[in-house]
Amino acid sequence: MGIGITPEQRELAAAVRGLLAREVPPEAVRKLLDAPPGAGGGPAHWDGLAAQGLLGVHLPEEYGGGGGGLLDLAVVLEEAARAAL
């Protein structure tokens, strides 16, 4: 059974895909994967993802989130997985 997503969610997916392609090139992902565990804090792109509201897209706006739902989060996570974050 497939999950039907809206045109807005398709636009969200395209926007996230483009952002990640620009902000997190494959060589940056490779560098993170090759780093030893616990080596120096979070990835440099994390703050940019937070600034775009992608880390809280599913949270209510009253708590600082994007006001989306679980399916919106799934769209963002699918694109993050595609970029191998």
Results as ranks from 00 to 15, higher is better:
residue 1 M to H: 08
residue 2 G to W: 11
residue 2 G to T: 12
residue 3 I to A: 12
residue 4 G to H: 10
residue 4 G to P: 13
residue 5 I to A: 04
residue 5 I to G: 04
residue 5 I to H: 07
residue 5 I to S: 05
residue 6 T to E: 11
residue 6 T to C: 04
residue 6 T to A: 11
residue 7 P to Q: 12
residue 8 E to N: 09
residue 8 E to V: 07
residue 10 R to N: 08
residue 11 E to V: 13
residue 11 E to C: 08
residue 13 A to I: 06
residue 14 A to I: 10
residue 14 A to E: 15
residue 14 A to V: 09
residue 15 A to D: 15
residue 15 A to T: 13
residue 16 V to C: 04
residue 16 V to Q: 04
residue 19 L to E: 07
residue 19 L to V: 08
residue 19 L to G: 05
residue 20 L to D: 03
residue 20 L to W: 05
residue 20 L to T: 06
residue 21 A to W: 07
residue 22 R to Q: 13
residue 23 E to G: 02
residue 24 V to S: 02
residue 25 P to L: 00
residue 26 P to V: 00
residue 26 P to I: 00
residue 26 P to F: 01
residue 27 E to A: 05
residue 29 V to Q: 00
residue 29 V to G: 01
residue 29 V to N: 00
residue 29 V to R: 02
residue 30 R to I: 04
residue 30 R to F: 03
residue 31 K to Y: 11
residue 31 K to T: 09
residue 32 L to I: 09
residue 33 L to P: 03
residue 33 L to T: 12
residue 34 D to V: 10
residue 34 D to G: 09
residue 34 D to E: 15
residue 36 P to H: 13
residue 36 P to S: 11
residue 38 G to W: 13
residue 38 G to H: 12
residue 39 A to L: 13
residue 41 G to L: 15
residue 42 G to K: 14
residue 42 G to C: 13
residue 44 A to T: 10
residue 45 H to S: 06
residue 46 W to N: 08
residue 48 G to V: 02
residue 49 L to T: 02
residue 49 L to V: 08
residue 49 L to G: 01
residue 49 L to N: 02
residue 49 L to F: 08
residue 50 A to F: 03
residue 50 A to P: 00
residue 50 A to D: 04
residue 51 A to L: 02
residue 51 A to S: 06
residue 53 G to L: 01
residue 53 G to T: 01
residue 56 G to P: 03
residue 58 H to N: 09
residue 58 H to P: 02
residue 59 L to K: 11
residue 60 P to N: 07
residue 62 E to S: 12
residue 62 E to N: 11
residue 63 Y to G: 10
residue 63 Y to L: 15
residue 64 G to P: 05
residue 66 G to C: 04
residue 68 G to S: 05
residue 69 G to S: 10
residue 71 L to S: 10
residue 73 L to F: 10
residue 74 A to W: 14
residue 74 A to V: 15
residue 74 A to L: 15
residue 75 V to W: 00
residue 75 V to H: 01
residue 76 V to R: 00
residue 77 L to H: 03
residue 78 E to D: 11
residue 79 E to L: 01
residue 79 E to T: 03
residue 79 E to K: 01
residue 80 A to W: 04
residue 80 A to D: 00
residue 80 A to R: 03
residue 81 A to I: 10
residue 81 A to P: 04
residue 82 R to Q: 10
residue 82 R to S: 06
residue 85 L to E: 01
residue 85 L to H: 00
